[in-house]
C-alpha cells in the first residue's frame, strides 16, 4: 500500500515503514534505548532526505520515551530532580543543536556532517560496548566473579562547586557536570536525530554513579523533553517534520517496544550489551561504506526553491 509523504515528498510503502517502526521499537524496548540511531539511518536508506529523517524521528522518539517514562513513573524508578538539572543543560543543547543543523543545511554540509557523526559516534560507542561485554563474558566463563567497573571514589569534578543532593538516586555531586552531560546529549540528539539514551545511560553510571534503579527512568525523561523540544524547533525553523511519516513510525515503534521489553527480560545483561554493541557497529559501518566507497551516482539534485 503506497502512501505519499507530504513533507518528504516521496511515496513510500506504509507496510515497509510500519515494519521498520515495529522492528526498531522491538530493539529499543529490548535494550532500553530510544532507537533513533537505527531509525534515522533506515529512513535515509529508503530514500527519505536526511534532514527530514532527523527532524521526523525526533517526534517518534518523544512518543516511545513518553510511554517508557510513564511506566518508570508508576514504579517510582526515576529521579525528577536529577532529570530537571540534566534538562537545564539538555534544552540549551537542543537549541544549539537545531541552530547548527540549520546553519549546516544552508552551507550544504548537513548530509556530510550527519554521515561523519554517525560513523565516529557509532563506531566508538559500539566498539566500547562490544569490548566491555566480551571481556565480562570471558571473565564469567573463566569462573571469576564479574567485577562491575567502578570509578575512583573521587573524580576531579567532585571538587566543583554548586553541589546538590539528589535524594532519590542517593548521590551528592556538583550540578555543573550534570548540566554539561545534558547539554552534550541535547546537542548531539538534535543534529543526529537520536534520543541519546545509549550514550546517556553509560555516562550517568560511569561519571555520576547514578544507581541502576533510577538511571533508565531518569534518562527517559531527558530524552522525552529534549526530543519534544527538538520536534517543535525543527518544525518552526526548518519546516522538515513529516507528521504522516512520524505517525506511522510511532504506531509501529510503541507497539514493537512492548514486545521487545518482554524479550529483553529473558536475556543476560552482558549478552544484551554485546548484541547492542554489534548492532551499533553495523550501522556505523554502513555509514562508513557510503563515505568511503565510490558511489554509483556521483551527482545529486536538490530543488531549493521556485525559479523565475
Amino acid at each position: 500500500m503506497q502512501i505519499y509523504l507530504p513533507i518528504a515528498d516521496i511515496p513510500v510503502n506504509v507496510l515497509v515503514v510500519l515494519v521498520m517502526g515495529l522492528t526498531v521499537g522491538f530493539i529499543s524496548g529490548m535494550f532500553g534505548v530510544g532507537g533513533g540511531f537505527l531509525m534515522t539511518p533506515l529512513l535515509i536508506f529508503i530514500g527519505v532526505p536526511p534532514a527530514v529523517a532527523v527532524a521526523s524521528v525526533t517526534s517518534h522518539i518523544a512518543a516511545s520515551s513518553f510511554s517508557g517514562a510513564i511506566s518508570y513513573w508508576r514504579r517510582r524508578a526515576l529521579d525528577i530532580l536529577l532529570a530537571a538539572v540534566l534538562l537545564a543543560g539538555g534544552l540549551v543543547g537542543t537549541v544549539a543543536g537545531v541552530w547548527l543543523f540549520t546553519k549546516l543545511r544552508s552551507l550544504d554540509l548537513l548530509d556530510l556532517i550527519i554521515g561523519l557523526s554517525y560513523v565516529s559516534l557509532l563506531s566508538i560507542v559500539g566498539g566500547l560496548m562490544v569490548f566491555e561485554s566480551v571481556r565480562a563474558i570471558v571473565r564469567s566463563r573463566q569462573g571469576q566473579p564479574a567485577v562491575p567497573r567502578r570509578p575512583g571514589s573521587h573524580s576531579w569534578f567532585h571538587g566543583l562547586p554548586l553541589k546538590m543532593r539528589f535524594k532519590v538516586s542517593r548521590i551528592y555531586v556538583s550540578t555543573i557536570p550534570v548540566a554539561l552531560i545534558g547539554f552534550v546529549i541535547g546537542f548531539i540528539g538534535a543534529i543526529m536525530g537520536i534520543g541519546g539514551g545509549f550514550l546517556l545511560v553509560p555516562m550517568l553510571i560511569y561519571f555520576l554513579r547514578v544507581p541502576t534503579s533510577t538511571v533508565i527512568g531518569t534518562s527517559t525523561v531527558l530524552t522525552l523533553v529534549t526530543m519534544a523540544a527538538a520536534t517543535i524547533l525543527h518544525a518552526t525553523t526548518n519546516h522538515l517534520v513529516d507528521a504522516l511519516l512520524a505517525l506511522i513510525l510511532m504506531i509501529g515503534g510503541v507497539t514493537g517496544a512492548q514486545f521487545g521489553a518482554r524479550a529483553g527480560q529473558r536475556m543476560s545483561a552482558e549478552r544484551l550489551r554485546l548484541l547492542l554493541g554489534i548492532l551499533v557497529l553495523t550501522v556505523g559501518f554502513r555509514f562508513a561504506l557510503d563515505l568511503l566507497v565510490e558511489p554509483r551516482e556521483l551527482f545529486s539534485l536538490r530543488i531549493v526553491g521556485a525559479g523565475g
Binding site: I232, L233, A235, M250
Partner: peptide, 25 residues
C-alpha cells in the same frame, strides 16, 4: 500547516507523539 503555522504544527506533532506513547502505556 507545516509552512504557515509551523509552531502549532510542531506542537501538534509533539502532542500526537505524547498521545501515542500514552495510549501504548
Amino acid at each position: 500547516a507545516a509552512r504557515d503555522h509551523s509552531f502549532l504544527y510542531g506542537l501538534a506533532t509533539t502532542m500526537m507523539g505524547l498521545m501515542t506513547g500514552w495510549l501504548a502505556s
